[in-house]
Design a protein around this nucleic acid. Sequence first.
DNA 1: AACTAGCGAACGAACGATCGTTCGTTCGCT
DNA 2: AGCGAACGAACGATCGTTCGTTCGCTAGTT
Lengths: 188, 188
Amino acid sequence: MTTRSREDVVQAAGRLFAARGFHGTSMRDLGDELGLLGSSLYSHVDSKEQLLIEVVQRGAALFQALADSVAASDSPPEDKVAALVRGHVNVITSNQEQSATFLNEARFLPADGRTAIVVLRDRYEATFREVIAAGIASGAFREQNPALASIMVLSVLNALTRWYRPTGAQNATEIADAMVAFVMDGLR
Amino acid sequence: MTTRSREDVVQAAGRLFAARGFHGTSMRDLGDELGLLGSSLYSHVDSKEQLLIEVVQRGAALFQALADSVAASDSPPEDKVAALVRGHVNVITSNQEQSATFLNEARFLPADGRTAIVVLRDRYEATFREVIAAGIASGAFREQNPALASIMVLSVLNALTRWYRPTGAQNATEIADAMVAFVMDGLR
DNA sequence: AACTAGCGAACGAACGATCGTTCGTTCGCT
DNA sequence: AGCGAACGAACGATCGTTCGTTCGCTAGTT
C-alpha cells in the first residue's frame, strides 16, 4: 500500500461526489475509497468543501479551455458549433467524474465559491450563444432565440454525464457524430 | 396556525428535495418549512425515505400518464413526437419540484424502490424510442439510431427542471414551441 | 349551554449513529 | 534524525427517529 498524494484525494472526491453526491459522501467514505481513515485525509486537504471547490473548478477549467480555443479560431459559425459540440463530448467522456461533479454538485458550493463558478458557467454558455447568434446572422441557422437555442444544445451535451458509460453501445466518436447531426439540423 | 396534512408534508418534501437535494435536506429543515418541529412530521409519515419514494412516484406517474395517452392515439409518428414534447414541457412547468425530484433524486432511493422507478423510466423512454423509430420507418425522420435520438430529445426536455423559472423571459408555451421546432428539425 | 371524553397533531427531550474536524501519537521512508 | 503520511481516539454538532406528554378541536351527553 503506497502512500497517497493530494492528487489522489481530489480524484477520488470527484469520483464519489459524482456517484453519490456531495452530501451523500462522507469523509470516511472518501477515506475508504483510498484505503485510509477519514481523518487521514486532512494531511492532504483543509476541508470537505475545499475538495468540492477544487473538483468543480477543474471541471470548469476544462470547458473554459475548449470555449477559448474555439472562440479564437476564425472558422464560420456553423463549424464553430460543431467544434464546440465535439469538444464538449470529448471533455465529458474523457473526464466523466469531474464533469459530472461540476455540472451537478456546483450548487452545493459555499456562497462565495459558487458565484465564481456561476460566472464561468455563464461565460461558457455565452460562447455558445454568440456563436449561434453569428450563425443566425450569417444565414447558416434559421431565425430563432439564441439564448434558448444555446440552452437546448447544452442540454443535449450535459446530459451525457448522466448516461455515458465507456463500455456502452456507442463510443465517444459515434456519440459526437450523432450530436453534431442532431444539433446542426435542430438549429437548421 | 392551522394544522398540517400529510399532503402538505409531501409537497414541502418535493420542494426541498428539489432545491437542496435529498441528502441536503434534514427532517428538521422540512419541519421548519412547515412551521413544525422535525419530530412532528412523524405524525404524518413513516420515514424520510418514504417521503422520497412518494414524491418520486408521483413524478413518475405524471410522465407515465402522458406517455400512455400519446401512445394510445393514432396520429402519425411526427405528431406523436410533438405531442410528447409539448406534454413533457407541460408536466415539468406545471409540477417543477416533483419533476425535479423525480429526475434528479431518484438515484438516492433505497434499492427496492429504485428498481421500480427505473422500470417506469425505461418504459417512458421506450415510448419515445418507439415513436421515433416509427417516424424513421415512415420516412418522416432520417435514418438514425432511435435509442440515441430518444436520449437526445429527452435531454433537451429534462434539462428544463434545471433552468425553467415561471417568471423567466419565455413562458411555457413559447418554450414548448421552440423545443418542438428544435427537436423536429434535429430528427429531420 | 356547559361539560367532557376522545383523538389526531404537535411538542420537546432524548436515543444512538454519524457527521466534519482536531490533535497527539506512531509509522515508514530518506 | 527528520518529516510527511496515517492512525485512532475524541470533540461538538447534527442526523433520523422514538416516545411520553400536551394541545386543540369535535362529538356526544347532560
